[in-house]
Each structure stands twice: as C-alpha cells, then as structure tokens.
Write a protein that binds this DNA or RNA. Structure first.
Length: 192
DNA sequence: TAGGCCATCTGGTCCT
DNA sequence: AGGACCAGATGGCCTA
C-alpha cells in the first residue's frame, strides 16, 4: 500500500475523530461547563481548513472529485496537501495536527478553570494568565478561610474592612475590591 | 497606532 | 522512531 495513502487514511480518521470530539477534549468535561466562546470549540477540521501551510498544487484523485459533501471536500484538500510531498512535510503536517490538538486540550482546561474562578457576569473574558493568577489567589483565599476557622462571610467582611494580610491578595488584579465583593457574594451564596 | 492576547507553525529536547 | 512537550517566531484581531 502506498505509504502516503496509508498516512492520509490515518489522518482522515484522526481529523474525523477529533471533529466528533469537539467540546469534549478536556478530561474535566464531565463538569458540564459550557464555554461561552465558540472559538474555543473549533474543530480540527476548521483549523485544518484555516491552515495556510503546505498548500501545494498537486494532483487530486479523481475518485474524490465527485464527493458532494463536506467530507469529500476535506479529503480533496488533504489529498492536495499530502500527495507528492516530501516525507518530512508529511511528518511535519502530522506533528502540526498533534500540536493543535494538544493546544486545544490545554485551552479546554483553561475554559474549565475559568468556570471555577469568580468573575462578574459583565466582566470581559479572563485571559489565560489572569485565569491562572486569579485561580492561585482564589485558592489562597479559600485556604486562609479554612485555616482561620472563621465564618467565611465574616472573614471576607473583615478583609473588606481591613485589607488583606497575605501578599497573595495583591494578585486580585483587574477588578480589585469589586472582585472581593463578588467573592463575598459568591461565598454567601455557596456557603449559606 | 501600539500593545495585549491568541492561534499556529516550527525545531529542539525528552520520554517511551 | 515516533509522540509529547516546550519555547520562540509570526501574524491576526481587538481595544484603549
């Protein structure tokens, strides 16, 4: 069997599987967290069609030309890219797909994490770095509350009045005290 | 328009 | 050897 054809078949399978998995890339997806941002749920096929790389004018298998549906088009595109390619390019293309898949899974995890840190409904989407910093600060605050043994609400009240003792609280970035108020509301709602 | 954020590609390194 | 992971480079989009 032609190695290129075999490789293409494997890629087809991979891309198709990935399309089916859209929105379920993360091992945390069982949390049922819905992303508000559709771009975070791009399929690999979408990404594939956006890829500017490896556009080489090559022959297209005539047996694929008549395929009417999207899968046929995708196959044609892949066929164009993969046939008559240097083996290195084929390997590189496969590596790019794996890398995109890996990044998607990371982004999916970020989406899950965003769902677990307190933000305002009207607040703009947290960046990745803000998500990480806020998560760290949130965990630190929860730990402080646990260690203090105080009532969570009164602890947050105390923080509002006197400021924080712990320097990690300096990381409450973008919204400052407003975010603390939101935390307070969150704690009241969740711990009441 | 500059800066921030992001997706993607790429080559290097490490691991299995 | 092949895949996973990582970091640098690049270009697009958006916002102040």
């Amino acid at each position: 069997m032609d190695p290129n054809f075999q490789f293409q078949s494997q890629l087809d399978t991979l891309l198709f599987d990935c399309s089916a998995m859209t929105g379920q890339m993360s091992p945390w997806s069982s949390f049922g967290c819905q992303s508000v941002f559709p771009e975070a749920q791009l399929t690999f096929t979408d990404l594939d069609s956006q890829s500017p790389q490896l556009e080489v004018g090559a022959e297209v298998d005539s047996s694929l030309v008549d395929e009417p549906h999207e899968l046929g088009k995708r196959r044609q595109q892949q066929q164009r890219r993969l046939t008559s390619h240097h083996p290195y390019k084929v390997q590189r293309y496969a590596a790019n797909i794996r890398e995109r898949k890996r990044m998607l899974s990371i982004n999916s995890a970020f989406e899950e994490l965003r769902c677990h840190v307190p933000t305002f409904p009207y607040e703009k989407r947290l960046s990745k770095i803000d998500t990480l910093r806020l998560a760290i600060a949130y965990i630190a605050l929860l730990r402080e509350i646990l260690m203090s043994g105080c009532d969570p609400k009164s602890y947050v009240d105390e923080c509002m009045k006197n400021g924080y003792k712990n320097q990690t609280n300096a990381i409450w970035n973008t919204s400052g005290k407003m975010r603390v108020k939101h935390m307070q509301a969150t704690l009241e709602g969740k711990l009441a």
